[in-house]
């Protein structure tokens, strides 16, 4: 499965595209797409240049966790630096 991610333009925060076409900082809320369906979704997302600095496709497993070749990168990106557990989304979820 695939999902769409990017960094929010105003502050660079990591965001994911949700089913209702809004951006969310919660990876668990990311919309999941079949591999064949995602190209037009990405094209549409990339047009939203005032909302995000970039947008790209990531591999996710059926439960929404990062998968594939960029698994470490996307896991860290979604959670926060592994060396600063007090920063990033990982800090929010467990606070």
């Amino acid at each position: 499965m695939k999902a769409i991610t990017g960094n929010r333009l105003s502050d660079g925060a990591v965001v994911y595209l949700r089913d209702d076409d809004q951006w969310t900082t919660q990876r668990s809320e990311a919309a999941r797409f079949d591999d064949d369906d995602i190209a037009p979704v990405l094209s549409a997302a990339q047009l939203r240049v005032r909302e995000i600095a970039d947008a790209y496709i990531i591999d996710v497993s059926a439960d929404g966790a990062p998968a594939g070749r960029t698994i470490i990168r996307e896991t860290i990106r979604g959670a926060g630096p592994t060396v600063r557990g007090d920063l990033g989304l990982q800090a929010e979820c467990c606070a």
Partner: peptide, 28 residues
């Protein structure tokens, strides 16, 4: 100009880089 959409990210990127601003994994 970037926030208003007048500049695309491709056009803005070299301008922000010349001012030391990167986009990294979690943030700028």
């Amino acid at each position: 100009r970037r926030l208003s959409g007048e500049l695309s990210e491709d056009q803005f990127k070299p301008l922000r880089l010349m001012n030391g601003l990167y986009l990294q994994l979690h943030a700028y």
